[in-house]
Design a protein around this nucleic acid. Structure first.
Length: 831
RNA sequence: GCCGGGGUGGCGAAAUGGCAGACGCAGCGCACUCAAAAUGCGCCGGGUAACACCCGUGUGGGUUCGAGUCCCACCCCCGGUACCA
């Protein structure tokens, strides 16, 4: 894409003063020219092997083709690109691919609104966005582009499904799903915002449906460990919390008077079982009907019905109406620990989906049970001695057991072990680990997704589509109105099929897969994106996987990143990939906000269009500004006015090359500039490596200022000047690839700057001959003196005490101690 | 509630326990110009006539010759999560 920079201020303004006679920096033509050249030469085509170079796989999350590139995409992609380019210069053969996560609801919504077919809409958006991405000047290898909605891609998404099915990791069961009564369709979790449908703002209800799941819980324990992964702590923590491992015990309680009925409960605190004063079942618990007594039946039924109708929001915000949250069933359970009967209640704070859907309630040690007991006037027995002065609330901490017979006096850990052993001896229960993580619900009753490749046969049951019949193509001529049924179910041609096993009449599965399935393996596809016989060849996988550096937003911490790890572990178990983890290093960049500090959105009118910024300032400038804004992992508001500073900087860099001072032979004078250049080189390399792009840019600005000073004096040492400019062009290459290439050409470097090695700094030139050190008296700076960085303490003292101000402060006092940090400060402690 | 990340000039920010505010925006002054823009040079935390001095990194304590940085307690903001037994 080319831009016309001649209409706006910075690109068109005439340049006078110090730069008179020279051309001004015009990003538009320069960027267009190099983008074209790079593409023509295939500069960024990445072979699987390059002699003498080791492979390194850099990846940034692929976007959904919504139609327009967002500043957020630039903020995620261009620093990632700078990082990939930096490592390329450091000698690696770097793969940095891009593609499109192209299935999903927006395409279907666009179609429903009466526009184009999702296919058409998506393709047009991809075209447009690919063009916009090319204008970023990244080193994406477009030969490896993937499009998850293309049959040659979802062929393999479906293949993965069949593999998981064969391994017993894909299964169907009835489950509650988020249902939007207005859209008449199920919604993915991520489309439910605060209990409401993101599209219609309708309150989402739960609805029982036959659904497909992936058995991610099988890998829960392994997913808990991030051993050997260089990931941000907070992301690892989010995953651990999401998986939510808890250790405890599960045991059975008999229902009084109904010896054939047992209630299974899970608890993390079996040591407190003597304090159970009631039991609670989830309203949806399967035994509710059987245990409810005739007297309580109508109350129970009314309660269950009310809970069923209550939406999630109300169910979560019932603090005010505690007494309405439960109902007595009339039945009693026998506490196996003391053989005492306790009343069985139903309460909405117990969930069917966790544990066994039933709990032993110990108000003395659990705040929710405490609140419930208070509301329903149930007894409270403490079984852990609370600290002195403990108030009128549950005590969940540690302490000696009490009121607990043979557990009395024991501390928590020991008591838990003893209680579990007791249960196991009597065969009443056992040690149990529970996870908060649920199996991954992958079926969607929508059109624009990969069809689940399964066939329902009366005779044979569920039969996966044989591999040689994949892909199951998504039919094009479909009515995708939101009827509540899968749109695919409306196509007789699609649904009716012969059973692959018995040949009899059968029906295709009509649900499509969650788009997170597509993105769970896309990083395995880039290494061999055109392979028609496998997701990727073993050679390509061996060459590139696992990903060495992944970057993306942390909003994916518990979804995509967890799903992808799960997929990789399955692939490992199938013998397809090396190692245990897909992403060795992961870095979560922050979120870029609108100038008003809020999330950018059309409705708020605070969207900054990247194309506009590129047209006005150039892609290099926009890239550098995004990097310069602040720490990459922090994100923050996009300040439209600040970019001019970066633009000015690039103009000065341009001027340094195109309009240098008079170059003379003065090595003495040049030394200072050389020291600036080499210390900057050292810093900038470290900053790039650490992903501290803001300080990398600031460092280059400082060097540019040093060059500018030399230009002001009108004269500079030729060797020092040329070396400094050369280093600056190389340092600039990762951040501002077009300008760096142009400058590199102008100073006579060979094409391409992006194939140059990162220069080595001269350690001797990273230290100044003298530095200013602070002289403190009792920790307060009283003077600054010039000293060699390695000056001896004696020398430093001598100079320091010679200072009038210091002498005055010290006069008449006793010098107790002197602390000297060479090159930093000298602190005189006086009394 | 719980978990995580943050509070530093007017603003975005920087700072291996060692000169707080690098770099940039905005602002002010000067040069160039008929003028403006652009460009260049200088100033730019507060108090103060001051280059001396005092105060200053959310608040209050502490450790240290020395704390934005380490420890304890608390306040506020932003993200995630939501009765997980």
């Amino acid at each position: 894409m080319t831009t016309d920079p001649t209409t706006d201020a910075p690109a068109s303004a005439a340049s006078h003063g110090a730069t008179s006679g020279a051309t001004r920096y015009q990003p538009g033509p320069i960027e267009a020219r190099w983008q074209e050249r790079w593409e023509r030469d295939g500069l960024y085509r990445t072979p699987d092997h390059v002699p003498g170079r080791e492979n390194r796989y850099h990846l940034t999350m692929f976007p959904y083709p919504s139609g327009d590139l967002h500043v957020g995409h630039w903020f995620a992609m261009t620093p990632s690109d700078a990082l990939a380019r930096y490592f390329q210069m450091r000698g690696w053969n770097v793969l940095f691919p891009m593609g499109f996560d192209a299935f999903g609801l927006p395409a279907e919504n666009a179609a429903i609104k009466g526009g184009k077919h999702p296919q058409e809409w998506t393709s047009a958006n991809i075209e447009r966005m690919r063009g916009q991405m090319k204008a970023m000047g990244t080193m994406f290898d477009w030969d490896r582009e993937v499009n998850s909605s293309a049959p040659d891609y979802y062929h393999w998404t479906q293949w993965w499904f069949t593999q998981l099915f064969k391994r017993g990791l894909a299964y169907q069961k009835k489950a509650t799903a988020n249902w939007c009564p207005d859209c008449n369709t199920t919604l993915a979790n991520e489309q439910v915002i605060d209990g409401r449908c993101e599209r219609s703002d309708t309150i989402v209800v739960q609805r029982e449906m036959e659904q497909w799941f992936f058995r991610i819980t099988e890998y829960a324990e392994e997913l808990l460990s991030h051993e050997g992964l260089d990931w941000p702590e907070h992301v690892k923590l989010m995953q651990r919390n999401w998986i939510g491992r808890s250790e405890g015990a599960e045991f059975t309680m008999q229902v009084q008077g109904q010896p054939d009925l047992g209630i299974r409960v899970f608890t993390t605190r079996p040591d407190t079982a003597f304090g159970m004063t009631f039991a609670v079942l989830a309203p949806e618990h399967e035994l509710v009907d059987q245990i409810t007594t005739p007297e309580q039946r109508s109350a129970v039924e009314e309660f269950v019905e009310r809970v069923r109708r209550t939406n999630e929001i109300d169910r979560l915000s019932t603090e005010a109406a505690l007494d309405k949250r439960g109902v007595f069933t009339g039945a009693y359970a026998i506490n196996p620990f003391n053989e005492q009967p306790v009343p069985i209640y139903l309460a909405d704070y117990v969930l069917t989906s966790y544990g066994t859907g039933a709990i032993m309630a110990v108000p003395g040690q659990d705040q929710r049970d405490w609140d419930f007991a208070k509301a329903y006037d149930l007894p409270i027995v403490r079984t852990v001695t609370p600290p002195e002065g403990w108030g009128d609330e549950a005590y969940t901490g540690d302490g000696p057991a009490m009121n607990s017979q043979w557990l009395d006096g024991l501390l928590k850990t020991e008591a838990i072990q003893k209680a579990i052993a007791w249960l196991e001896e009597r065969d009443i229960g056992e040690r149990k680990v529970n996870y908060r993580l649920r199996d991954w619900l992958i079926s969607r009753q929508r059109y624009w997704g990969a069809p689940i490749p399964a066939i329902h046969c009366e005779q044979c049951g569920i039969v996966p589509v044989p591999e040689d019949q994949l892909p199951v193509l998504l039919p094009q001529d479909i009515e995708f109105l939101p009827t509540g049924q899968s749109p695919l179910a409306l196509s007789e041609a699609f649904v009716n099929v012969a059973c692959p096993q018995c040949g009899g009449a059968a029906r295709r599965e009509t649900d499509t897969m969650d788009t997170f399935v597509c993105s769970s393996w896309y990083y395995m596809r880039y290494p061999d994106a055109r392979n028609a016989d496998a997701p990727a060849s073993p050679e390509a996988i061996e060459a590139w996987l696992p990903v060495d550096q992944y970057t993306g937003g942390s909003e994916h911490a518990t979804m995509h990143l967890l799903y992808a790890r799960f997929f990789y572990k399955v692939a490992r178990d199938m013998g397809l990939v090396p190692g245990d983890e897909p992403f060795t290093r992961y870095y979560a960049q922050g979120q870029i906000l609108g100038p008003d500090g809020r999330r950018m959105s059309k409705s708020r009118g605070n969207v900054v269009a990247p194309d506009g910024q590129v047209a006005k300032w150039g892609a290099d400038c926009f890239r550098a500004y995004l990097m310069f804004l602040g720490p990459w992992d922090q994100g923050g508001p996009y300040d439209v006015d600040g970019i001019v500073g970066v633009s000015r900087w690039l103009s000065r860099v341009w001027a340094a090359v195109t309009d240098p001072p008079t170059l003379v032979d003065a090595p003495e004078a040049g030394r200072s500039l050389l020291i600036d250049a080499h210390s900057t080189l050292k810093k900038v390399g470290e900053h790039y490596e650490a992903k501290h792009f803001n300080t990398a840019i600031a460092g280059m600005m400082e060097l540019t200022n040093a060059l500018q000073k030399a230009r002001d004096t009108g004269e500079a040492d030729r060797a020092a000047w040329e070396e400094s400019v050369r280093l600056l062009a190389l340092m600039l290459a990762p951040a501002c690839p077009h300008l760096a290439e142009e400058l590199w050409e102008r100073i006579g470097g060979g094409y391409s700057v992006h194939q140059q090695d990162w220069p080595a700094f001269d350690p001797a030139l990273t230290v100044r001959d003298t530095v200013e050190i602070a002289v403190q008296v009792n920790g307060k700076v009283r003077a600054r003196v010039e000293l060699a960085p390695d000056a001896s303490e004696d020398a430093a003292r001598e100079v320091a005490f010679a200072d009038a101000n210091v002498a005055g402060q010290v006069q008449g006092k006793q010098v107790v101690r002197v602390i000297y940090v060479p090159g930093r400060l000298l602190n005189v402690v006086v009394k």
